[in-house]
């Protein structure tokens, strides 16, 4: 992992939702301010929380492994972000990573493994019964992480 000023990368876990795009944008801004590197992470999880999650990609190419579908979506997200936000493209030290597993646990493990300086992630802000039943990945990460966590809620920072 490339480290600028010996500070670990900013870890941005994304789940392809508008709020995670907002988080990515916010993290780019932070990385530029702090001259830090950026690691975009997607956890290829069993999409139990949302059936049809990778459906878009997987339907087109049938009999495709879920992780390959997720990889295609991550590449797509980064390509679109580069197109939309020139400052993201200017960022030299940026990498992306795909890991299999359950999101919150994996995010914390990766943060630990790469020595991340902070985690920036989006939250849809589920409320009511859904929140009670599902909790939220962002909340779990914020509660358990040993490093600063920024939760980005709005799609328009």
């Amino acid at each position: 992992m490339t480290k600028a000023h010996d500070v670990g990368p900013i870890l941005v876990p994304v789940d392809f939702s508008p709020s995670s795009e907002a988080a990515l944008l916010h993290a780019v801004w932070l990385a530029r301010c702090l001259d830090s590197s950026l690691l975009v992470l997607h956890v290829v999880h069993d999409p139990g929380t949302m059936p049809d999650y990778y459906g878009k990609v997987l339907k087109k190419k049938q009999l495709m492994r879920i992780e390959d579908g997720a990889a295609a979506m991550l590449d797509d997200l980064i390509a679109k972000a580069e197109e939309r936000y020139p400052e993201f493209k200017k960022l030299k030290n940026r990498e992306s990573m795909l890991v299999k597993g359950l999101p919150s646990g994996r995010i914390l493990e990766v943060a630990d493994k790469v020595g991340a300086s902070m985690i920036v992630l989006g939250s849809k802000g589920a409320t009511g019964l859904k929140h009670l039943l599902m909790g939220s990945v962002a909340e779990q990460v914020a509660r358990l992480a040993k490093i600063p966590v920024t939760i980005v809620k709005s799609a328009h920072p």
């Binding site: 290829v44 992780e67 997720a70 990889a71 990573m97 795909l98 890991v99 299999k100 597993g101 359950l102 646990g105 994996r106 493990e109 990766v110 493994k113």
Partner: peptide, 12 residues
């Protein structure tokens, strides 16, 4: 049944 700890094989 939680995940196994993060290992090389989990990295795609």
């Amino acid at each position: 049944i939680p995940d196994r700890p993060l290992g090389e094989e989990m990295l795609v």
